[in-house]
């Protein structure tokens, strides 16, 4: 239920952005940019599995990918398009996540598709929130043993999941972006493996206008 609310909230924010885009003459109301980003992930999992007890530690890795930045409207009369309050930023990222346990790094390589609704609190600083879809490309190792449970991680390959992200980003007029985002996984890894992936991501990017 909580998960449904989060998604509905994000959809609502996205709809508001799209509505503001749709209300005016499109070419004049929207500044769209294409960009790239990359950065560091600090990830772990939340373990809701009662049958496997352990304390997951953080794992450091990276992410990189492409994005489209849609910045709607303008802030003041006479201000240029792309200075408005709202924006939308779909991304396509390769994101290496996972966790560490007993000195062993457990890796999950994801393809993620976040769609972030942005609220520009200033012309350069925005806060963002939105859902993301994830697709698990691979795991390492293929099988691990945690708390005497033998887990065939490789069988999770191709699993899809959803989550929500919340963060903030700074954009310079030249196109440099620096952001921080917390991604909260909402999907269990499997019916009988109640792990949810959580990631703190710090990114730098560049928007091509």
């Amino acid at each position: 239920m909580k998960q449904k609310r989060l998604i509905m909230l994000t959809l609502l924010m996205s709809a508001m952005c799209l509505a503001s885009y749709a209300q005016g003459e499109a070419p004049k109301q929207l500044k769209s940019s294409f960009g790239v980003k990359a950065g560091m992930n600090l990830s772990t999992i939340s373990n809701g599995d009662a049958s496997i007890h352990f304390s997951p530690a953080m794992k450091a890795d990276f992410h990189m990918g492409l994005l489209a930045n849609l910045h709607f409207g303008y802030r003041d009369e006479g201000a240029p398009v792309g200075t408005g309050w709202f924006g939308l930023q779909p991304e396509l990222l390769y994101s290496r996540q996972g966790f560490a346990v007993d000195g062993e790094a457990i890796g999950f390589d994801y393809l993620t598709l976040p769609v972030m609704a942005k609220l520009y609190v200033t012309r350069n600083i925005n806060i963002e929130a939105g859902p993301y879809l994830s697709y698990l490309l691979s795991t390492s190792p293929a099988t691990t043993v945690i708390d005497d449970a033998e887990i065939p991680l490789s069988n999770l390959k191709s699993k899809t999941g959803i989550g929500v992200g919340i963060g903030a980003e700074y954009e310079t007029r030249q196109g440099l972006t620096v952001g921080v985002r917390y991604n909260l996984g909402l999907s269990d890894m499997a019916n009988n493996l109640q792990w949810k992936s959580n990631t703190l991501a710090v990114s730098v990017g560049w928007l091509f206008f």
Binding site: L11, A190, N191
Partner: peptide, 26 residues
């Protein structure tokens, strides 16, 4: 970007994909 966004939204349903059961051995 909009199509990607729409595709994403339409792919979301109320219940997250929990995936299949893993053959976990204890």
């Amino acid at each position: 970007a909009l199509i990607a966004g729409m595709l994403f939204f339409t792919s979301c349903n109320d219940k997250p994909d929990p995936g299949k059961d893993l053959d976990i051995k204890y």
